[in-house]
């Protein structure tokens, strides 16, 4: 009973700042100014399906690259000496102490025409547009959200009991078998939370594409921001659609995680 009372402030917080706004978004999305239920805003939101698809594609690509980069790194960190672990994790987190916009802005400078990277490539006779395309947007996303993939993976991998690996080795498993039969299944919870923590913000973020992308890289977050300025209803409908997509994604991810856990 006592512990329930202590949770009250947080429940209140959730109610006022999460549930009520969520209810308002839904109400705006399905009702017009006169208060009648209507599907017109949802159907207007449907008009932006190409932008949705593009955003999901960018999010998926960024998440996959994050996973590919973070997985081996997290494994290596979790096997390193305690002091090395602390140092490397610190290095992973340092960029997060800086403002999000500043970091993206730094990339704008790095990738700009005649900028550092362009000049270096120019020496080798390579002249490609580094900024203003989907590649640059994905790069920005990966840079921005990589720590969110590394941290959960590292935490989960650090908890893997070394004796399990030793047991597998004793039983004659080679390196690959140890990885596929012991490490990989045991790290699934880390993968699931890492993927969720990267995919969800990349799918909904704005500004990154405005800074690094070209005219074709508009993401759904940017559209929502613009639409909201004059049309709360369509803006809410767009947000609602995005929330549903993300919710579906999370459900699928959790299913996947649960099954894997049962499989072990």
């Amino acid at each position: 009973m006592k512990s329930k009372k202590l949770a009250l402030p947080y429940i209140l917080w959730m109610l006022v700042f999460v549930l009520v706004p969520l209810g308002m978004v839904i109400a705006f999305a399905i009702r017009d100014d006169a208060g009648n239920f209507t599907a017109q805003f949802i159907s207007k939101a449907w008009g932006y399906r190409d932008v949705f698809l593009h955003s999901l594609w960018v999010a998926l690509l960024s998440t996959a690259i994050c996973l590919l980069l973070a997985y081996p790194l997290s494994y290596i960190i979790s096997r390193a000496k305690a002091r090395t672990q602390r140092t490397v994790i610190m290095l992973v987190m340092v960029p997060m102490w800086m403002n999000f916009l500043l970091r993206i802005y730094a990339w704008v400078v790095l990738l700009s025409k005649g900028g550092p990277l362009d000049s270096i490539l120019g020496i080798f006779g390579i002249h490609v547009p580094l900024i203003g395309n989907t590649g640059a947007v994905v790069l920005g996303m990966v840079y921005e959200f990589l720590p969110f993939m590394i941290l959960p993976l590292y935490t989960v991998m650090g908890k893997i009991d070394k004796s399990l690996i030793e047991a597998a080795q004793d039983l004659g498993s080679n390196g690959f078998k140890v990885f596929s039969k012991v490490v990989l299944p045991l790290s699934v919870p880390g993968i699931v939370s890492g993927v969720t923590m990267v995919f969800v913000p990349t799918a909904s973020t704005f500004l990154v594409s405005q800074y690094l992308g070209g005219t074709d890289d508009i993401m759904i977050g940017d559209v929502i921001e613009k639409v909201f300025q004059t049309d709360r209803h369509t803006g809410s409908a767009l947000s609602l659609c995005l929330m549903v997509i993300i919710l579906l994604f999370i459900i699928v991810m959790n299913r996947f995680g649960d099954e894997e856990a049962v499989g072990i």
């Binding site: 008009g47 932008v51 005219t215 508009i218 559209v223 613009k226 300025q229 004059t230 049309d231």
Partner: peptide, 15 residues
């Protein structure tokens, strides 16, 4: 007209 203009401009950007 104003919201229509706004909407059309976003459409141009999003297409």
């Amino acid at each position: 007209v104003y919201s229509y203009m706004q909407e059309k401009f976003i459409e141009v950007k999003a297409e």
